[in-house]
Nucleic acid binder design. Structure first.
Lengths: 175, 175
DNA sequence: CGCTGATATTTAGCGTGCGAAACATCTAAC
DNA sequence: GTTAGATGTTTCGCACGCTAAATATCAGCG
């Protein structure tokens, strides 16, 4: 039997007062909106990146290294929310294109430091729009109150999800 | 020069009154929250699907076909927000596993109708949680007012993005 | 020193996900 | 009816993105 993260169980321990069943369409609409916003911003990032011969993730990496400087592969993976193995591939291709360089750390020879090459730096300066900025542009149209409400509610939501996930894992998840 | 989708331009035509520069951290937090919610719900979907030997997208397809019945490949692609070529691959693997079947339409022989097999139907009944429901669980903790505000603001946001995208494309996009 | 377990990275295999091109079929226009 | 363009699907090539396993190195311990 699996009991990794039992979502149906979780429901029973939650306040029933809130978001009643008749709001189902609204809930679906919220989900729809979030998915739309995420996928669209991703598509836009990709489009911006493509104008400079980059992929979406590659642009993210370039901007990250420009901002934070040298990063180990692990740190870089955390920053862009991807697995090490995924980033290995991305860095492989970027290295092939001469955008970044790998350097073995001297203090700990397991660690690989990733740095921007001259070409990488130039690209970082060329591309004005950071991935996150595409979202930001859309947010510009909101009133300050709306923005505050949005942040408050989304944060609450994210924390709830985080809690659900933690509960699930605490229940005996062996990775 | 590129002008495929000029995001900086768009800003000029927008109300300056809203979301001022000093709210930058809040804006970043909103983005962070949306990205988190999206990726986490996707991860959870994948986890639920895995318990039944499915991938995330495959579970989505199973639930979609269970709900809507027979769908052409194009319609199915729209529904799950993916390109035809992507769905062709997903359906290939599901067909191989005996979950769905392809049937050439008699009225229009270009069209391929996708249907659930008996095994597909059984799986659909077995798996209680629809992908969207994972989000829903998190939303259960919100007050009704919060849910309404969230929907209102997100919708506004999504419409703004949609408008930005349309503007960009109308401005003369040559792939 | 030699062993053990932890940590950092890579490799291998698979499943999306996309755009472009190939292919089949349909539709309209002549 | 033939031709030209539109539409539905697949194929191809590439880039993620993930997990599991392999590899290399480190840190500590007897």
């Amino acid at each position: 039997m699996f009991r990794t993260l039992n979502i149906s169980d979780a429901k029973d321990s939650m306040p029933k007062s809130a978001v009643p069943p008749e709001m189902k369409p609204e809930v679906d609409a919220i989900v729809e909106a979030i998915v739309y916003l995420y996928t669209e911003s991703r598509r836009l990032t990709k489009e911006v990146a493509a104008r400079h011969g980059l992929t979406g993730p590659q642009l993210t990496v370039v901007k990250m290294l420009e901002t934070l400087g040298e990063l180990s592969l692990s740190r870089l993976s955390e920053k862009i929310r991807a697995q090490n193995s995924t980033v290995t591939g991305i860095v492989d291709r970027m290295e092939r294109e001469g955008l970044v360089a790998r350097a073995r750390s001297t203090s700990d020879r397991r660690v690989v430091q990733i740095t921007l090459t001259a070409r990488g730096h130039q690209l970082a300066r060329e591309v004005k729009v950071e991935p996150i900025q595409i979202f930001r542009e859309a947010l510009v149209g909101l009133s300050r109150d709306d923005a505050k409400d949005l942040l408050r509610i989304l944060t609450k939501l994210a924390n709830r999800v985080r809690q659900m996930v933690d509960d699930g894992q605490a229940r005996g998840d062996q990775t």
